[in-house]
Design a protein around this nucleic acid. Structure first.
Lengths: 217, 217
DNA sequence: ACCAGTCAATACGCCACCGTATGTATCGCG
DNA sequence: CGCGATACATACGGTGGCGTATTGACTGGT
């Protein structure tokens, strides 16, 4: 009876927890309360068990943290890279990255919370790997748009910074973010500005500016 | 002996602490360890006293937090607004805001750490006020550049997001940031992209911009 | 029916921090 | 000189989290 059910419900309804359940719960906690919220006893309460359970699955709190970060990295790669890599067109790829960056609120908070703890050496490794991946994808895309190596790198960083900044605004001061159509316009402006479509001659002036200044007509 | 010396050193050399000393120490702690690092006993140790001192100056930890945030807000306003407001030229104003955003590492970490705790209602008020001020200044500047109200708002948000994103990159993955000349180029690219004003260089087609600019011949 | 393995509850000692209560030393000042 | 205010120190109880040790309950296999 009851082989480890595959249900995903958070409260009870399960009789036997797995290490991944704990890691998933840890990620939820991080998204809400930051890395410090990964505390054994509160998590246990949330899962409807006591910490006696936890220390069967993990050696200590640090092991849980590592497991959670690994899960996070996998999720990020699965969600972002797989969905983005299928696009051969560099323009589309950047747009998809942009939309992936505007991820679910929970994932955004998660990314920010983990990045904020990058002083922790273990966390640092994960953050660095993922950041490099993001920037790398952007870099490649800009290269494919015809930019020189240093220029592509700069645009990639620029775009990445904008992604992260938007995540922050949504988290810290969501009222600042426009709604509905205004938000759509806002995104369009950023895309238009950050992705110059016709990158014909590098070294010349940035082509997107031409498209930029034509508000009406 | 030893009348309250006026030295500004951090360790000892003073005999009597003020509430502002505690608040300043709290800000340092926040910049390093986040809001949770504002802990009475560690701070007391750092100041070379015991918490018996603290509870003379403050009612409780929350009062210290409030004092620290007020100090922070004052510093931000003094440093950013006063230095920026003196520039009548909108282009210069935005550039100055950009450079102010690229503040000292400590101030950057401080801003990020405080913003990250914006779920705390008290903190939220401070973060919101300062964010509104930043975006407001940017908004005004873009308006002065000739943008329509909604467009200026979008550009202001865009620029602000980029500011914040760069702060984050510098904090979490500083290796990603270019050095020296490359960094200078990077900043130039962002400024050029975020402040489209060709009126000065090319003087060509930008009637609305040209009409508004009076450099004060 | 029994046993080993799995998953969890309970109870314990430890430490860090909060807040309070109370003692104490120093300074200004009349 | 002595008194009150100032600016601390010391000691205490309480809470919350970590990690360990021990025990219990339920599982499938033989």
């Amino acid at each position: 009876m009851k082989p480890p059910a595959a249900s995903g419900a958070s409260t009870d309804s399960r009789q036997s927890l797995s290490a991944d359940d704990w890691a998933e719960a840890a990620l939820d906690a991080i998204a809400i309360g930051g890395l410090d919220a990964v505390a054994v006893e509160p998590l246990a309460r949330g899962l409807g068990v006591t910490k006696g359970s936890f220390y069967w699955h993990f050696q200590n709190r640090d092991a849980l943290l590592r497991a959670a970060l690994q899960l996070w990295e996998r999720h990020q790669i699965d969600e972002v890279l797989s969905k983005v890599d299928q696009s051969a067109e560099p323009y589309e790829r950047i747009v998809r990255l942009f939309k992936a960056a505007n991820m679910s609120v929970r994932d955004g908070r998660l990314y920010l919370a983990i990045a904020a703890a990058a002083d922790n050496p273990m966390v640092q490794a994960f953050v660095q790997r993922l950041s490099e991946r993001w920037i790398g994808y952007l870099d490649d895309s800009y290269r494919a748009l015809g930019y020189s190596k240093p220029q592509a790198r700069q645009w990639a960083l620029f775009a990445f910074a904008t992604f992260m900044g938007n995540l922050q605004i949504r988290r810290d001061t969501p009222q600042m973010m426009p709604d509905g159509a205004a938000f759509s316009d806002y995104v369009k402006l950023m895309i238009k500005t950050l992705i110059p479509r016709e990158a014909r001659d590098e070294g010349a002036d940035h082509p997107h500016v031409v498209a930029l200044r034509r508000p009406g007509a």
